[in-house]
Design a protein around this nucleic acid. Structure first.
Length: 823
RNA sequence: GCGGAUGUGGUGAAAUUGGUAUACACGCCAGACUUAGGAUCUGGUGCCGCAAGGCGUGGAGGUUCAAGUCCUCUCAUCCGCACCA
């Protein structure tokens, strides 16, 4: 009954053997034949922190399953990997261990490459890169120069987010709850020079083309990006000071402008408020127009972090008045801590009757509350709260009686007709500040010349590489302190000049690495990538990574793609067709982290059980988008399954092609086993192509093996293993290649055909329900008539039908019979 | 407060998209083989009940012959945004 071959399951030996085989045979290199159908599978590349963690293992197990499946289908697969190797941790490690950041980084990369190999991931070796490679820096600096020339990069002095711990500036996206995204230190505002990418120029397009990603990207990520861009339409207009205020201000300011999304409440404006950082406030401070007490209050407000500002509304009256643009009524001007300096114009019109914030403020400082909208039905008590819903306008001149929402347009039109203001759109999105005052990053290729000002380095001088002989102390910018590095000649006039010592945010590197992977390694040295390679490989068919990049990396990468399109490098708008955001790996209900001491080391798991076990467990325990709870027992279970899968291969008879089986001659158990095998195959195709629920696919193969085990037809065992080791190969590749090599001459690792005949059956089991409640079941011939089925059902369910009247009989083909009874 | 998601056995989770709820696995129980078993194999396992039977997808309603799935309300948990005018 069994074949003669036997295979001992020894994960370490088998896995090492196939890893060597794949390396020797360059098994996973994409072809340069651009006529083949391509598949670009990408997972977010790691920072080389030293060792992989389980989140990485999950990420790459998912992408590897996609990549290996696509290869089986005959696609030309690009499945690259690299290292996002610039960044602060390298520098911090250097400070801590007195090491060199570069040495630290590249040592880590070597170690992690070994881990990738040990996990059997099918990455292209020839396209591996590290973003700290000088070649990568060279091309990146070239892009920076192009972007500067196109006005998409500029340098400006501004109020910036400064992390006192990391001693660098951060982009808005990198400030989480008022704290540094990396070290959680509360950020402070600092006035300094900074380089910015003009991402706001693309705000509308970044927002609009989110529509193209619907269906391919998780809804949650699309919503988060939409909110981050934060587009809002409204009215912008000027508020003019009265004569007394003009005198106070010595006519230096005649007015300030405000933005509102609620123009329909214009007749309800009863005061105005400025941000403490507003230029009029600054003017008054500088010209001693405020009392010491007020100055102290303003200073206090400015020094309070945005998080603490939220706790309590505070205001200071400036003793100035502006005139209502329509009624001419005097409106007092206040400073309010809740007015944001960097949104709109940093000043607002306040309508306390119809805005919760304005209401709180008005109550606190006993300011007028003028209602202009009433509910469509009922009354609203304006002494208790603001009314913020849609209603009917009153005390609003010609707009009285109108629906408040609908009259927004009318009010804007009036302002425009009378040249008092204009329709405006505002965005929450700010330009992306990219300079960092740290060492381990790509230098910005600029030179400061006393005569020529800020000039670009010449492209032929790129890369501007980092010096390796630096002293990293954590105090000050090592590039700035280096004795010689920053001294250079001006590329324009040739005189002595100094280099820019700021380096770039590492999110710049990850904004185009997926394009670099498309470059043919043979042209690696001479070009960043080519249009031809781009148009073949891009866009990424399937991108896999963590939700934590929903805004940061994914927004920046989309921005770069659009910029590169406009610079003529590429011809597509969106880089990632489909995005899968994998869930976190948890242990004891919490995210694995060193500080909690609940980590599981991938190396230890590989050593104990092998890579196949780790991969199988990770893909079996939960669907990829869900959180994954680590469970040692279940890992053991995954190992036992693989061992059983291996042991039972002894039933196979060696063959070079799939055995041909006469289905009709099989007995019932055999037919059932065969059906289970093909069901698993159907499910595999569904899962790899659209559903991504690897857990159900694996369950299907387990069912098939359980079913095979109830019979002893060796042809069926062979056919079953031919198919099952093919569909499991993307998940547990080593054992599948071993089995395939041992029994099938590696001929079965290709796309398998579904045979419809195995699903044909001559009888079926139907459930019988009474009033929708399942009572029993019947077995009938596949082509049995409805009458006979119903009558059999009645017979079988007689017990529940006594003294009852059957009022309806329902037959759901191949599923069930439902008898509706009364009495 | 706004937005998004998720609630199914002791546990991780399935459910052909309105048609036999709990597949597959972990755990647990029993048996076999064993000097031994934390190995392997076989069987059992939603809850209550001695049983007949009843109850069961966070809760309450509703639509339907039929609801985990659709509708309304509600509770809980998680995540994201958060004074954006």
């Amino acid at each position: 009954m069994t074949g003669t071959n036997n295979l001992e399951y020894n994960a370490q030996t088998i896995e090492k053997k196939w890893q060597e085989y794949w390396a020797e045979h360059n098994s996973f290199e994409p072809s340069e034949d651009f006529t083949k159908e391509k598949k670009y599978i990408l997972s977010m590349f790691p920072f080389p922190s030293g060792r992989l963690h389980m989140g990485h293992v999950r990420n790459y197990s998912i992408s590897d399953a996609f990549a290996r499946f696509a290869r089986q289908e005959g696609k030309n697969v690009l499945h690259p990997i690299g290292f996002d190797s610039f960044g602060m941790p390298a520098e911090n490690a250097a400070i801590k261990n007195n090491a060199n950041p570069k040495t630290w980084t590249y040592d880590n990369i070597e170690y992690m490459k070994g881990e990738f190999k040990a996990l059997g991931f099918s990455f292209s070796k020839t396209r591996e890169l590290a973003t700290s490679d000088e070649l990568y820096t060279k091309f990146e600096q070239g892009f920076i120069i192009d972007m500067y020339e196109s006005g998409l990069l500029y340098r400006e002095k501004g109020l910036l987010n400064w992390c006192p711990h990391d001693k660098t500036v951060l982009a808005n996206e990198q400030v989480v709850d008022g704290c540094c995204w990396r070290c959680d230190t509360p950020i402070v505002k600092k006035d300094m020079n900074q380089y910015y990418f003009k991402i706001t120029k693309y705000a509308d397009e970044l927002l609009d083309s989110l529509k193209k990603l619907e269906g391919g990207w998780p809804k949650q990520v699309l919503t988060m990006q939409e909110n981050w861009i934060g587009k809002s339409n409204g009215l912008e207009f000027d508020l003019y000071f009265d004569d007394n205020s003009l005198n106070i201000l010595d006519n230096k300011f005649k007015s300030f402008d405000v933005f509102t999304t609620r123009p329909e409440t214009i007749y309800g404006v009863s005061y105005t408020a400025l941000a403490p950082e507003h230029k009029i406030v600054s003017y008054m401070i500088e010209n001693n127009l405020l009392s010491d007490d007020v100055l102290a209050q303003i200073k206090d407000m400015k020094n309070t972090s945005s998080i603490n500002r939220q706790k309590e509304k505070k205001g200071i009256s400036l003793g100035l008045d502006v005139l209502h643009p329509l009624t001419g009524k005097k409106l007092p001007v206040w400073i309010a801590n809740f007015v944001l300096t960097d949104y709109g114009s940093g000043a607002v019109m306040a309508v306390p009757a119809h805005d919760d914030r304005d209401f709180d403020f008005a109550k606190k400082y006993s300011l007028e509350i003028d209602a202009v909208i009433k509910p469509k039905e009922g009354e609203h008590d304006f002494s208790k709260s603001a009314f913020c819903d849609v209603g009917i306008l009153f005390d609003s001149a010609e707009f009285n009686g109108l629906n408040s929402k609908k009259s927004q347009y009318n009010v804007i039109k009036k302002f425009e007709d009378e040249k008092l203001g204009k329709k405006t759109t505002n965005y929450k999105l700010k330009d992306w500040g990219v300079s960092r005052q740290r060492y381990w990053g790509a230098p910005l290729p600029f030179v400061h010349c006393d005569d020529c000002g800020l000039v670009m380095e010449k492209k032929e001088n790129l890369p501007i590489a980092l010096p390796s002989d630096v002293e990293i102390t954590g105090e000050g910018n090592p590039l700035d302190k280096h004795p010689t590095w920053k001294h250079c000649k001006c590329p324009v006039c040739g005189k002595d000049a100094t280099r820019e010592t700021d380096t770039m945010d590492t999110f710049v590197e990850s904004s185009w690495y997926f394009l670099r992977f498309c470059a043919s390694p043979k042209n690696w040295e001479t070009e960043a990538f080519s249009k031809e390679q781009m148009s073949y490989w891009m866009s990424v068919d399937q991108y896999i990574g963590g939700i934590e990049h929903a805004i940061l990396h994914l927004l920046y990468a989309r921005f770069f793609t659009k910029v590169f399109r406009d610079l003529g490098y590429v011809e597509f708008d969106e880089p990632f067709d489909k995005l899968l955001t994998q869930g976190m790996v948890l242990k004891d209900g919490a995210k694995m982290s060193k500080s909690k001491g609940n980590t599981v080391d991938p190396d230890a798991i590989i050593k104990k059980y092998g890579a196949d076990t780790a991969r199988l467990f990770i893909l079996f325990a939960a669907p990829p988008t869900q959180e994954l709870e680590w469970n040692d027992n279940a890992v053991e279970g995954a190992y036992k399954f693989i061992k059983r899968f291996s042991d039972r291969s002894s039933h196979i008879i060696k063959t070079d092609k799939i055995p041909s089986i006469q289905h009709a001659t099989l007995c019932k158990d055999e037919k059932y086993a065969r059906k289970k095998v093909y069901e698993a195959l159907v499910r595999a195709k569904e899962v790899y192509n659209e559903k991504y629920t690897f857990n159900t696919l694996i369950a299907g193969t387990m069912e098939a093996i359980n079913a095979l085990n109830t019979q002893d037809n060796s042809d069926l065992w062979s056919e079953g293993y031919w198919i099952l080791s093919s569909i499991l190969e993307p998940i547990i590749p080593h054992i599948c290649w071993e089995i395939s090599n041992e029994y099938f001459s590696l001929n079965n690792l290709t796309s398998q055909k579904v045979l419809d005949e195995v699903f044909l059956e001559d009888s079926m089991t139907l459930g019988v329900s009474i009033n929708g409640k399942r009572r029993c079941e019947i077995e009938v011939a596949i082509d049995e008539s409805k009458e006979n089925i119903i009558s059999l059902a009645k017979q079988k369910a007689q017990k529940w039908l006594e003294d009852k009247e059957i009022v309806k009989e329902i037959l759901v083909p191949k599923k069930l019979v439902n008898l509706v009874v009364k009495g």
